[in-house]
């Protein structure tokens, strides 16, 4: 008989093994036919276009709050004019990718887990397999591709909204000149920052898509199970977003600067 700890360890190892197997299956399915182009386009629309509002609002209000907060702090050093530099650098390098990914984990990760989870508990996934269709190719690949490819695009949009919001606050509340703000925005950025701002969301999007699919496909136990999977997908994806960002940041700094 296995002890509680042994059972937990076995379940955890199995979970990781299944996740790695899913990643490998996705890798194979991306480069070998059949391809489900229509499903990919539909997912790009659902995940990319569908997340536009939430990501834009997140970027806008984060940029505005950041400008207000940093403006006050920079004042102490007589450096209020540097607010543009601070907003752009922190958004593009760190806050843009992470906040966008967290919003996607909440909106997209949960949606994928709920959708695939419902299909799993109603035997639709098994029905797909019984009809000779590979669920990884038909369901997982379009969602993972859409999450991975749309995350950088959405991050750029969030960054743009944040910088514009920072400009509005700087001009209206902090009394910083418009041209000063934009000059600082550009001066504070290096090419490495732009790359970092694009590579990070790419990896984070992959994490969100694959975790949502993995948790969704593994759903057991009816509607309660679907609820559990949805929560788990958001929690696991959010924690992983923060953790992956932490490990990715020094790596990218070493490579890009």
């Amino acid at each position: 008989m296995l002890t509680h700890t042994e059972r937990w360890a076995k379940a955890a190892i199995l979970e990781v093994q299944e996740y790695v197997q899913l990643l490998a299956a996705v890798g194979r399915a991306v480069v070998t036919p059949p391809f489900y182009r229509r499903d990919v386009v539909l997912q790009f629309d659902a995940i990319g276009i569908g997340s536009l509002t939430v990501v834009s609002l997140t970027g806008f209000f984060t940029g505005a709050a950041l400008a207000l907060q940093t403006g006050q702090t920079l004042d102490r050093f007589g450096a209020r004019t540097l607010v543009g530099q601070l907003v752009s650098a922190s958004m593009i390098r760190e806050l843009g990718p992470v906040l966008t990914a967290l919003m996607l984990a909440g909106r997209v990760g949960s949606g994928i887990a709920a959708e695939l989870g419902s299909m799993a508990v109603t035997d639709q996934i098994n029905a797909l397999r019984a009809l000779g269709t590979d669920p990884v190719r038909k369901l997982v690949v379009p969602r993972v591709l859409a999450a991975t490819m749309m995350a950088p695009v959405l991050t750029v949009i969030a960054d743009t909204f944040a910088i514009v919001a920072g400009w509005i606050i700087s001009v209206t509340s902090l009394g910083v000149g418009s041209s000063t703000y934009w000059t600082q925005v550009l001066e504070g950025l290096y090419l490495g920052d732009a790359w970092q701002g694009l590579v990070k969301p790419f990896v984070l999007g992959l994490v969100i898509g694959t975790i949502g699919c993995h948790v969704g496909l593994g759903t057991r136990g009816g509607t309660q199970g679907v609820g559990r999977s949805t929560t788990n997908a958001v929690v696991v994806a959010s924690v992983l977003v923060i953790a992956v960002d932490f490990f990715l940041t020094p790596l990218l700094m070493r490579v890009l600067y």
């Binding site: 035997d123 639709q124 019984a130 000779g132 269709t133």
Partner: peptide, 29 residues
């Protein structure tokens, strides 16, 4: 599986497809 047909408990119909699309799913695939 091309020579096997399965009727699942509760049907397991694809709920985002119409009846006709469900029935023709494999043929279209």
């Amino acid at each position: 599986r091309a020579d096997l047909g399965m009727v699942f408990q509760e049907g397991a119909l694809f709920d985002s497809l119409t009846v006709a699309e469900n029935v023709g799913f494999k043929l279209l695939e």
